[in-house]
Design a protein around this nucleic acid. Structure first.
Lengths: 342, 342
DNA sequence: TGAAAAAATGCAAACGGTTGTAGGGTGGCA
DNA sequence: TGCCACCCTACAACCGTTTGCATTTTTTCA
């Protein structure tokens, strides 16, 4: 019995115990097909499997079926609070039907993205959810070329023939600007996210257009090279060097907003007394900071969940035409915005 | 060529292109062994592999070698900010040597833990890092029984013959009590984490002992059933019902502390003017809240990283005797603690 | 009652690598 | 020139499942 517990029981072990061929066991245990195995044998096999502590070797199964019941997820960095809810949304929906997810952090480095994709392909993942897309993205191109099912989440590429679950950035900045303009702000600056990302690019574009629509000069736009607090701070300092007449800033993300607030604190600018600020993404706990950050909330968990559903459809071959789904964000007004000072 | 790109190139395709046996290709491509393949052939094979876009099928390799170069990680919930850094620490260290990690959320439900472990075993993971341990933990027992290499992280079990990377909870509560006592607090309450977790249990124990050591009555202890803000709020309300003479509270975790603060706000208690509070774990961004939460920081990333290293040693058979590693936490004093009101 | 249809099970070949061992070629040395 | 080593490389079996097809068993019905 030492030997028995030594290595995992296989399908052949239970076949032997029952006295049938191992293929019969295989069929008996995979209930999906109408497998033509008599109920009595099925029961005997199930009992034997139970007794031996048998459970299927997913690896062997994957090899044979050339599918792995696994999907990959590419994110920039797990420690960025935007991503855990997205991932959780993905996991919850795919796990419910027996899939597992493999995530990889790419730190926005193309080399790591390539490596991760390689690794995932080596593991025969059936599809990928990509949260790292740049507007021109070699990884996306490669997925297309290799015909790997994929869905973009949060960030989009410049082509439209892809599946994506993203947010209505237009709506996001319009509602932000509406709010600020209602508060009588006129000199509004924008610390934009990186222009090679759709989120950074689109929001900056809409910002400019919508400002003009309101006859406001959209001249105070500076870009942050990353969605980080450091870059946000750098951006705001640069802005101060150019023009300090602004009374409000629209930040490309919450992290960027945090950096802006830090930079303003350094020069004695108070939020919201001197300048109002609104962030983006609404990451957790920022509602409790001082001042509580006004932000555009995006449905992170749902986006993950939806992206997963779409991916599963693609994998199952149920979806032919590309789908881009724009989720509606919601401006949450807290204490970092106030009427424009006179 | 359609057909070629249709399906992934295999080792046999490469072999055919070069005109050698596929086993030769296998040996040529796995450099580790002194594989006795002539350099010229190796070069030809590498070129052919490159040309065909070949990369190894990890699944097949896993099946044959009965190892998967994958480890599992069991966490309660990815969305709890404590875990992403731990996971990132794990990922970074194992990925550097070609392993991948599969994480599963268990929501502290035993059923999900069992399922997750099953799934991981089915995928032939070589070991597990467990962040979900309760003091008596059936999953841990099962790992022992099945001889699955594992390392506990953050939480410990009651037995000591296991590998674990945890924090010196004793030190944690002693330094927070020192701090509070220095501030002349005498009536100090403790909202403890769940007593079925080592962290909840140990901290509560140390709290009581260390209070007595200072001739203070440790009577104000109430337990939260989970490490959540909701439970923290519930705990504090219960405390208020018992005795409201306390001027400081030691919370079992940051999330519990947040709940306490909320509950206190409801009844008009101000932090830190009326009561001081210190949290645990020091999750990100709470330094920016109002008031900035004093907390006991734990080296989350390093804990993950260390746990991964230990696990890899166990897997490699390089570690026989169990190791429990206690990482030193650090009290970070911010604005949620102040001298005791008179 | 017997033949044909239907149902249940067995057989064997995969899936794509790895690896022990056998065999072919080359060079060294007497 | 001949023999023996010694490198390389080829062969084949195997890892645990799945699955088309053959075969056996059971059922059906004339």
């Amino acid at each position: 019995m030492k030997k028995k517990s030594r290595r995992k029981a296989t399908i052949r072990d239970v076949a032997e115990l029952v006295g049938v061929h191992h293929s019969t066991v295989s069929r008996a245990l995979s209930r999906n097909k109408q497998s033509k195995i008599s109920p009595s044998v099925v029961r005997k096999i199930e009992r034997a499997a139970e007794k031996l502590g048998y459970f299927p070797n997913l690896v062997a199964s994957s090899l044979k079926q050339n599918r792995s019941f696994a999907i990959g997820v590419l994110i920039p960095d797990l420690m960025n609070p935007v991503f855990p809810p997205i991932i959780r949304g993905i996991q919850d929906t795919v796990e419910s039907i027996g899939y597992t997810v493999i995530t990889a952090n790419t730190d926005d480095e193309e080399r790591k993205e390539q490596e991760a994709l390689r690794m995932m392909q080596g593991r025969s993942i059936e599809g990928v959810i990509i949260a790292t897309a740049r507007r021109e993205d070699p990884i996306v191109e490669e997925c297309i070329k290799r015909e790997i099912p994929f869905v973009l989440v949060n960030r989009m590429v410049d082509r439209v023939d892809v599946n994506a679950v993203i947010v209505d950035e237009d709506f996001a900045v319009r509602s932000t600007l509406d709010h600020l303009i209602n508060l009588k702000h006129r000199r509004i600056a924008h610390i934009a996210g990186p222009p090679h990302t759709s989120t950074g690019f689109e929001r900056a574009n809409t910002f400019k257009n919508y400002m003009r629509l309101h006859n406001l000069e959209p001249d105070l736009v500076v870009v942050a090279d990353k969605f980080t607090a450091e870059e946000g701070a750098r951006g705001l300092k640069k802005l101060l060097g150019i023009d300090n007449s602004f009374t409000a800033v629209v930040a490309g993300s919450d992290l960027i907003a945090l950096g802006c607030i830090d930079a303003m604190a350094e020069v004695g600018l108070m939020v919201p007394e001197n300048v109002s600020i609104v962030g983006g993404n609404d990451i957790p706990f920022l509602s409790r900071m001082n001042p509580a950050l006004s932000s555009v909330a995006i449905p992170k968990y749902e986006m993950g969940s939806q992206a997963a559903k779409v991916l599963l459809e693609v994998i199952a071959g149920e979806r032919e035409t590309p789908l881009v789904m724009r989720m509606q964000p919601r401006l949450i007004v807290r204490n970092s915005t106030a009427p424009a000072p006179r």
